[in-house]
Simulated assay, not measured.
Amino acid sequence: MGERPLRRFIRRFRRERLAVVALIVLALFVAASALAPVLAPYDPNAQNLANLLAPPGSEGHLLGTDHLGRDIVSRLLYGGQVSLLAAVQAVAVGAALGVVPGLLAGYLGGRTDWLIMRVTDTMMSFPPLILAMTVIAALGPGLVNAMIAIGILFAPRFLRMARSAVLAVREEVFVEAARSMGIPRWQIMSRHIVPHTVAPLTVTVSVLASHAMLAEAALSFLGLGVQPPDASWGVLIAIGYQNIFTAPDMILWPGLCIAVVVLAFNLLGDGIRDSLGRETRHPVKE
């Protein structure tokens, strides 16, 4: 009997050392954010006006305090919760809106494909930031509304990737054989086509998760995302920018967190792609 797909994936993934390191880094960030109530030394919104802009290494404050005397470590931990959750929300909205139409467009073709792709082209013709700001203006500022806006922007990318994956496999011999046997379309789609879209869509999820974090940071920086006094890494960058001349280190910590997590998402996506693909970079010794 052949090797099970899951075991084959794990065996291949373990060879991708950068991807394994990226997965560990993401797991550490997720764990630290999830355990923020336990790990954070202070309430992230607790102000201490007698200890404003304390430098890193100050007594009781490893990374110092902000302009309101709030502990930066605590706000980084709680901000990680918000930023990571925002990435999940945006990707979920984009996948929900884009994957199914992309599968239908690729498999059915004809007028269905033409109509879906023209709608997609129309959406992609708008400048992304302007479209996001328009959605937020209609729904109101806030994290959920901002991530809905970003998810809408991601939907065409999911749609195009799903359509491309279906087009690459729908004319394969095993699909033609299934059609000749009279198997219903929905069974062909679910059993023979959808499994072959997992690899490219997984990479898309990973890459767009990193883009979602950057988008959340940008919108929060502009005041359209997370609203004070709640913390996110984007909000912390905005506060650091406001105090860049008096406490330049404040902008470093959230920026470093975003950079590391975005890099980890991209490396993880590359590793998953190579592990799920039909071919691998390394010869397999059976």
Rank of each mutant, 00 (worst) to 15 (best):
A218S: 15
D113E: 12
F158A: 06
A105F: 10
T122A: 15
T280G: 13
Y78N: 12
R4A: 11
G277Q: 13
T202I: 08
I188K: 14
L104I: 15
T122C: 15
V25N: 04
L53I: 05
A177W: 10
L52R: 13
D121I: 15
G102K: 13
L115C: 13
V38Q: 14
L76Q: 09
L222W: 02
P127S: 10
R17N: 08
R111Y: 08
H192V: 07
V169P: 07
A264M: 04
M189F: 02
L84K: 00
E172T: 15
W186M: 08
E172A: 15
P228I: 01
I136K: 06
F126H: 11
E172L: 14
G271W: 07
S210V: 06
G140Y: 08
G60P: 06
H67A: 15
G110K: 15
V260N: 04
A40M: 02
L167Q: 08
E171I: 09
A212V: 02
V82E: 00
A40P: 03
P128E: 07
I150T: 08
G110V: 09
S33L: 07
Q89R: 02
P55W: 12
G69Y: 02
V73T: 11
A87E: 06
A146S: 08
G69H: 03
F221N: 03
D249C: 07
A54C: 12
S58F: 01
N51G: 15
I237L: 08
T204R: 10
K285C: 07
S125N: 13
V99E: 05
N266T: 10
G80A: 05
H61C: 15
L85D: 00
T197Q: 11
G69A: 13
P200E: 15
R163N: 14
D274W: 11
V203W: 09
I272D: 11
T202N: 09
L35W: 01
D249S: 15
L153C: 06
E171R: 13
A95Y: 04
A165Q: 13
A209H: 04
Y78Q: 10
S83Y: 00
I152D: 07
D71M: 13
A34G: 08
A90E: 03
I251H: 07
I130C: 06
M124L: 14
V38N: 11
W114H: 14
I24W: 04
S220K: 02
L219I: 00
V203F: 14
L39H: 03
R179K: 09
L68K: 10
G64M: 11
R4H: 07
V135P: 01
A165C: 14
I188L: 08
Q89S: 05
G57H: 00
M213F: 00
R70W: 00
M124G: 05
N45G: 09
L63F: 04
G140V: 04
V203A: 09
L108V: 14
W233N: 05
N45L: 03
I237R: 04
S190G: 11
F154W: 06
V262W: 00
G142N: 06
A209K: 01
F174Q: 11
A217T: 04
G69C: 10
V25S: 03
V100L: 10
V119K: 11
D66G: 12
I136T: 02
